[in-house]
Design a protein around this nucleic acid. Structure first.
Lengths: 225, 225
DNA sequence: TGCATCATTCGATGTTAGTCGAAGCATCTT
DNA sequence: AAGATGCTTCGACTAACATCGAATGATGCA
């Protein structure tokens, strides 16, 4: 009767509210200490420690000990993708979706997903990339298209460098708010880096939203849309 | 502190082993009755009923009452996508990544997925069907192709009969071990029936593996590959 | 070396939720 | 109408686990 990977084991890890809060707090790709995560989850320090041990043991979190601080972060991009997929179902199937506040609207528009851009802007960007042959989609995988290298070279992103790492350059990541895919992988990360480096947008601390400045939004649209 | 969709709510739904088994059993997009799902999950009927009520209430399953039967199926493709993402993390981050035993190897090669063949052999079979125009794929749906009726008639499967049922004849089912699609639906079931009827393979009780006999494997390859 | 900070472990408590037997509904068949 | 089948509800039991207070361990600083 048991077939395939043990899905219940890791789903139950995410199933606890305290742990779920910790995981969502880490979805921006950063790493936090146990105390910070305890505050984030709204539980005491011993409780948080117990939860974190389980998450690390379960392979969802990776632990980086630095001196007396112990930083916890998501184990990898796959975990972030899984959490986004969960959010997509939760948003659609939620019982009574509390009306989206202004902050929530910003989240739908542009936010950080692990280390790349997500939200309506990110989905529109991938659409344009596909339309212009900058990337091509092969079933589930995404590859650099014929127009890709020159396009990215023109804006200062060296694609030949990105392929060197063992990490895939392009990946499709399902957007929970738009319910369509956006671009993840090292290329997606490089694009977010550029947006921040050019000061087109800023990332308020304590939130995943990405707030474009008025001129920054124009520049982003001109370059990527 | 609470932000975004209630991810823990639905993760905890998947977090119970019995419910997880039910959901994976429904990943081919088909619909099963409460009794069948109880058997699938390895729990009693009252327990299964309780679980199913929670899954429907949580928006993961949709219920189709037909007479005294009540068919449960996944609420939508997003749910399947989410489960797939969970499997991806579970397969990669699972601590019990024990070396695949002989039984597991058999599972990857050929197994039963509800009522049709799955595994490497099934994926190869669908590839051949697509290559020869026996079936054609239209985005997500699969239809009988121009060469289909005569092909199946030659081996004793009457395709005009299969369309009569309310159940779709062809359906794509994602294979968790190969990560590509194989053929489900009543046609897939008919093929598995033929394999068993011809005694090309046997199905050990208590397992989903399909064990081909040496001559049976040859006959299967000659006919379907 | 001593003190302060950060984090984990231990023990105890309370709540939640999965489980099944028996009974109750609803539907189809004869 | 009577029986059979499929499923749900009720009630009680059990087990797992989240939670916190207090104590212990680990690290860095003065």
């Amino acid at each position: 009767m048991k077939e395939g990977p043990d899905i219940a084991r890791i789903a139950s890890l995410v199933g606890d509210p305290a742990r779920a809060n910790m995981l969502t707090a880490l979805m921006d790709g950063g790493a936090l200490t146990a105390s910070e995560l305890a505050l984030e989850a709204g539980v005491g320090l011993p409780t948080a420690s117990s939860h974190l041990a389980k998450l690390v043991d379960g392979g969802l979190l990776k632990l980086a000990s630095q001196g007396r601080h112990r930083y916890f972060g998501l184990a990898g991009p796959q975990v972030a993708t899984m959490l986004e997929a969960l959010m997509g179902v939760a948003a659609g199937a939620g019982p009574s979706r509390t009306r989206p506040g202004p902050k929530d609207a910003g989240m739908r528009e542009a936010r950080v997903c692990y280390d790349h851009l997500a939200g309506a802007q990110a989905v529109a960007m991938l659409d344009r990339f596909l339309a212009d042959g900058i990337v091509v989609r092969d079933d589930e995988h995404i590859h650099l298209g014929p127009a890709g290298p020159s396009f990215f070279a023109a804006i200062g992103i060296d694609t030949s460098n990105l392929g060197a790492s063992r990490r895939p350059m392009c990946r499709a990541c399902l957007d929970w708010s738009v319910r369509r895919s956006h671009l993840a992988g090292s290329l997606g990360a490089a694009i977010l880096d550029k947006i921040v480096a050019e000061k087109w947008a800023r990332r308020p601390s304590g939130s995943r939203t990405v707030e474009f400045t008025p001129p920054g939004r124009k520049a982003f649209a001109k370059t990527f849309l």
